[in-house]
């Protein structure tokens, strides 16, 4: 036991006589030797190193015109949704008939239709993909419509939810 004790004491002694190199990493946060790096939600546009412009953005690109061939009972209208929003946010697109009559009209005739998938909410803050709204026209409606060019206006509305 004495021998062990002696060896231990010797070790401790050695430690003691180590050259006390006073060493320090200072200035950091936490225990002193950490530098916290964090991002700003603004980008630096004027080059002064300080973020000045919010970057969150989204773009919904909707087609100008969509055409249904005669007696097409279901037509997917694709549009693209791209966004880079704050965590937890997402783009929601709602498609509706401008005059909410849900009827395409020709000179004098009408063709009723319905919309499926009329609303789309992006699954994440950062998103870049297509979405689709489906225009449906029942075959009976086609059959009872005079052959003509029917048209209607759909309104796409985007919001951040």
């Amino acid at each position: 036991m004495k021998k062990i004790l002696a060896i231990a004491m010797a070790l401790v002694m050695m430690m003691a006589i180590c050259v006390p190199a006073f060493a320090a990493v200072t200035g950091g946060s936490n225990a002193g030797n950490d530098t916290i790096i964090n991002t700003d939600t603004k980008k630096d546009t004027d080059g002064d190193g300080i973020g000045d412009t919010e970057v969150a953005w989204y773009t919904v690109t909707i087609p100008a015109t969509q055409t249904l061939a005669w007696e097409t009972e279901s037509k997917d209208i694709e549009y693209t949704v791209a966004s880079q929003l704050k965590t937890g946010e997402a783009v929601k697109v709602t498609v509706a008939d401008a005059d909410s009559a849900y009827k395409m009209t020709s000179n004098g005739g009408e063709l009723a239709y319905t919309l499926d998938n009329a609303t789309f909410t992006a699954p994440s803050a950062v998103y870049d993909d297509t979405a689709k709204v489906t225009v449906k026209v029942a075959l009976d409606d086609w059959k009872s419509a005079a052959i003509d060019n029917y048209t209607d206006t759909l309104t796409f509305t985007a919001e951040i939810v």
């Binding site: 969150a56 953005w57 989204y58 773009t59 919904v60 690109t61 909707i62 087609p63 100008a64 015109t65 969509q66 055409t67 249904l68 061939a69 005669w70 209208i77 549009y79 697109v93 401008a98 395409m104 063709l111 239709y113 225009v135 052959i147 003509d148 060019n149 029917y150 048209t151 209607d152 206006t153 759909l154 309104t155 796409f156 509305t157 985007a158 919001e159 951040i160």
Partner: peptide, 24 residues
């Protein structure tokens, strides 16, 4: 195909849906 673009400033836009009888 000219497409319209919605974004934070322009939050609403319209698209035309029409029938095509050229196949008739």
């Amino acid at each position: 195909a000219f497409a319209a673009e919605l974004n934070a400033t322009t939050q609403s836009g319209t698209a035309t849906v029409q029938t095509d009888t050229s196949a008739i």
